[in-house]
């Protein structure tokens, strides 16, 4: 699973339309390789969130085929989807924190849903909140947190269970550049543990922060491959020492 060349996601001629409107995603054919770090860029309205929704199983495509973790997710019976979702970590563009739960309980939620014992989850959750700089706010309800703080809770919740695939939609949209870089380091650390990461962003400065990341670009719902990385992923070198 950790081998860099294995496919974790494969899209084949995928199209998506909402209701009776035109297609917001068209002819998407690409492969995500296990253990790599992807950025998804594109103008506002290009379809980034729509593509991520397909990835985190919130939407079925109108046409085409999607395989994830080696299985066809379109024909997968509904009852099998929760098990699949547990292998994902998602940072929603609108955070989606549970309103009446504290920051701590929001971050603990994926672990609780997976049956981790209380005494086993307390420390990791506290550590994670410390790491995103919210150790002191672990009892706070989302409504009392700033936008950036909510975003950090959402990120902590997405990564806490060490998912196999992390999908993050504008995860640094509401934080200052310094925190943005710090959060990116979190994703990188997770990536190094074997998680495949997909980060949607239109912040081009971010792209430069992760040297061996691959870039996907959406233009009006169509994928372009500016670096050719999707078709010909470069061999992954050992992480270079950072200056």
């Amino acid at each position: 699973m950790m081998a860099g060349s294995e496919d974790i996601v494969r899209f084949d001629n995928v199209g998506l339309r909402y209701g009776i409107g035109g297609e917001v995603l068209s002819d998407l054919t690409f492969t995500l390789h296990a253990g790599r770090f992807y950025f998804l860029t594109g103008a506002s309205g290009a379809g980034k969130t729509s593509l991520l929704k397909l990835l985190y199983l919130a939407q079925r495509p109108s046409r085409g085929a999607i395989r994830m973790f080696g299985g066809d997710v379109i024909t997968l019976p509904r009852a099998r989807l929760p098990a699949l979702r547990r292998r994902l970590g998602v940072v929603f563009q609108d955070f989606r924190l549970v309103r009446h739960l504290s920051a701590f309980d929001n971050v603990a939620l994926p672990l609780r849903l997976s049956g981790v014992r209380e005494d086993e989850l307390r420390q990791p959750v506290a550590d994670m909140l410390d790491w995103v700089g919210l150790g002191a706010r672990s009892d706070a309800r989302p409504a009392t947190l700033s936008g950036g703080e909510q975003q950090r809770v959402a990120i902590a919740r997405a990564v806490i269970a060490r998912p196999e695939l992390l999908v993050a939609d504008e995860p640094t949209g509401n934080v200052d550049p310094e925190m943005a870089v710090k959060l990116l380091r979190l994703f990188e650390a997770l990536n190094r543990l074997g998680t495949t990461v997909v980060v949607a962003t239109h912040d081009v400065h971010l792209l430069r922060q992760v040297p061996d990341s691959l870039i996907m670009r959406l233009d009006n719902g169509r994928m372009s491959d500016p670096t050719g990385a999707l078709r010909y992923p470069p061999r992954r070198e050992p992480a270079p020492a950072r200056a």
């Binding site: 929760p82 098990a83 547990r86 292998r87 549970v98 739960l101 309980d105 939620l109 672990l111 609780r112 849903l113 997976s114 049956g115 981790v116 086993e120 989850l121 990791p124 959750v125 550590d127 994670m128 410390d130 790491w131 990564v159 806490i160 269970a161 060490r162 380091r185 979190l186 990188e188 650390a189 997770l190 190094r192 543990l193």
Partner: peptide, 24 residues
Amino acid sequence: APSVFARAIGRGQAGLAGARAARV
């Protein structure tokens, strides 16, 4: 960073009983 992630977990599906359900 790695130390802050929870140990890789068996992704079972626990019943959400009692206090645990109340928390959700």
